[in-house]
């Protein structure tokens, strides 16, 4: 697998994780009324994965 392919996997994965972290309260799964600590971790990790993935997508076809 190349770094570009890995990036193409990480971008949607990161966005999905961030969206789940943001929207989990709407599903009634959050324990707090506000934004909980695990949601913050999920959002940060999700965004980091998306950013890393978008950088990798721009790289050449080196093996991951």
């Amino acid at each position: 697998m190349t770094k570009r392919m890995l990036g193409a996997v990480l971008v949607p994965l990161g966005i999905a994780l961030a969206l789940v972290a943001l929207g989990i309260d709407l599903l009634g799964a959050g324990r707090w009324g506000g934004f909980g600590p695990v949601q913050i971790i999920g959002l940060v990790v999700g965004l980091a994965l998306a950013v890393a993935g978008s950088i990798l997508v721009r790289t050449n076809g080196r093996p991951a």
């Binding site: 959050g30 324990r31 909980g36 600590p37 695990v38 971790i41």
Partner: peptide, 10 residues
């Protein structure tokens, strides 16, 4: 599952 417990341990 207690998310607060996990966050504290992290």
């Amino acid at each position: 599952y207690d998310a607060h417990q996990a966050a504290e341990l992290y």
